[in-house]
Design a protein around this nucleic acid. Structure first.
Lengths: 337, 337
DNA sequence: TCTGGAATTTACAGCGCTGGAATATCGCTG
DNA sequence: CAGCGATATTCCAGCGCTGTAAATTCCAGA
């Protein structure tokens, strides 16, 4: 155990505890000689500051939490990396907090029962309502990620789902596809993300003078690639035909790809398909998958930055920001076949 | 801010702080009437215990860290989930700590500069040596995950790489494959995992009376699926031929699959291939991938359990344990074609 | 009613650190 | 060399909570 305390260093260096603290924290009014002497004592004793003591004294932990349903989802795994990087630049570390996408899990996160562990939270809700967010939250600074309904008082950052869905759908249409389907949305109540993406999809169809056909909305039962394998497969086996397929996310796209390949349908020749999130895997499937690439790095940075501003006392009204996206063209829906 | 303190609750309930503390902690010698009165006060004030105060007093944080190279790697993402689950059963939360697989990153983890944050660590080293681990570590309880060289004094848990690699290679041979290649290992210095797996692969060849051909070891430059796409592709284009392919991990398998498909080679008819880790994605590629499935859940539970034992004072010699694995048969290397 | 032991509750002293006020020291100037 | 402002350092009082030991209350049995 590193039982060395500030006090021990102070005694060895022959100065007060506070001076040692000043050296450790890089406070500027410390003479060079004192600083060196203290530093030697620190090195000699192999002193490491105890965060808990510090935290108790300052009221800050230097920890923020990042909550979403499940790190097993590649998008979230990649997001956590980026948030870790962004946070460490600002002097914070990230505590992951998974909700499993359930109401209970999300409530637990919001209630934040044992307080004082983190200074603020980044939260991507899936199930909980805006009202509940504003009512339950414990007063901790919070930034909402994603498209879920958000109280006006809170900061939030998301991609423009509508515009992105419209872009990607338009791309398929301009490739010459006329029967463009959509898949990956929930079979039951739509998530905010799904419903915005479907609206963008429909808008693109309208813009290009194509009538939306409700049978071309192919839901999946579970939020896994396998859900899409089954959903898309079942639709095809029911005789539903399409030559373009907008997938709500890359996992759905990967599942859809398999469903089509199982049936001997060539992608992109017979069906062109697109994903969303631009996860690493989408570039190594065969064919690789054309995907909406949100600027996740910007999202992570900006979200962390907004949160830190709040932690440091910013009290303004909730800021709602959009981040950019672009369409990454790959084999599953290239410009020309 | 939840500025309610133990003291406030105590005053409202008309008891001492310590009694409130006892109620909060579920200490048993508290009369029912007192308990109820205190509970009412807690509810009324919406009191939440402050972890830092508690931790400072008890010397425990209830946090353990889990360090590995990168959550973006699906195996690690799945591992973190399982560890979170296991830890929360034992009353701990998990702080993720990525090292990027670099020496510096791993050293930073070991040195654990600001102490007192976590009670112990689970660490999957990739670059750092056993010696360095034992020298640098800060005295915090630690359990090593994976096959890297481990000081004898530390607990460690891993799969039996040798046996698993032998099993999967034997499976390909029994399918009738005679030229079985191996891919996914590092182009430069082999990691411990890679070298054990290669040894198991060679053993299986020997057992079945096949001479190992060094040209059939196809390294990849980067630890990504794309690395395998290039590595396997280049080998094939060089005229190296094989009818079975053992991949060091599922990411390599996914990359290898793409490399083969790009060249019109049918899997498994012309080349049967296998992966390792049994990540979610391996069941939705087309063909789906036969994979070694380590019992990751057991690994997570046992590792967490050993760590908690250490935290609670167990002082025995380092325990080195193996966890089970099984071979999950899928389309890329079924029993019969 | 009194007594002793068990059940409850409280007082007290920190855990390791930091903010701010108070004090000491320094370098200069006239 | 006194006097002054500026720079360095120390002192003090907690941050919110818990372990320990001591104090109080309770209750059955004599």
């Amino acid at each position: 155990m590193s039982g060395v305390r500030l006090q021990d260093v102070a005694e060895l260096a022959g100065v007060s505890m506070k001076t040692v603290s000043n050296v450790v924290r890089g406070y500027k009014h410390v003479s060079t000689t004192t600083r060196e002497r203290v530093q030697r004592a620190i090195d000699e004793l192999d002193y490491r500051p105890n965060l808990m003591g510090r935290r108790l004294a300052t009221g800050r932990t230097g920890l923020i939490s990042l909550s979403f349903s499940n790190v097993g989802i590649p998008y979230f795994a990649e997001l956590s990396r980026l948030v870790s990087v962004a946070a460490s630049k600002l002097g914070y570390r990230v505590l992951l907090d998974e909700t499993d996408g359930t109401i209970e899990g999300e409530r637990a996160v919001l209630e934040n029962f044992e307080s004082g562990l983190v200074d603020g939270m980044l939260f991507q809700p899936a199930a909980v309502s805006a009202l509940e967010i504003s009512r339950r939250r414990s007063g901790l600074p919070i930034v909402i990620l994603g498209e879920a309904a958000t109280p006006l008082t809170l900061d939030r950052i998301m991609v423009d789902n509508f515009a992105a869905a419209r872009d990607v759908t338009r791309h398929l249409i301009r490739m010459g596809r006329r029967r463009v389907a959509f898949t990956g949305h929930e079979a039951g109540r739509l998530s905010a993300a799904s419903s915005q993406r479907i609206m963008g999809y429909q808008q693109a169809l309208e813009d290009e003078g194509i009538k939306a056909d409700p049978r071309l909305l192919l839901p999946r039962d579970t939020v896994t690639p396998m859900g899409a394998v089954l959903g898309v497969g079942a639709a095809w086996d029911d005789g539903i035909r399409f030559d373009g397929l907008v997938c709500r996310d890359d996992l759905a796209a990967i599942g859809a790809l398999r469903a089509l390949q199982e049936r001997g349908i060539r992608v992109p020749q017979e069906v062109a398909l697109t994903g969303w999130d631009n996860i690493m895997m989408s570039r190594v499937t065969y064919p690789s998958i054309t995907s909406i690439a949100p600027d996740t790095s910007a999202l992570a940075h900006r979200a962390t930055q907004m949160l830190v501003e709040r932690i440091e006392g910013y009290e303004g009204v909730g800021r709602h920001e959009l981040i950019d996206h672009r369409l990454v063209l790959r084999e599953s829906a290239p410009t020309h076949i």
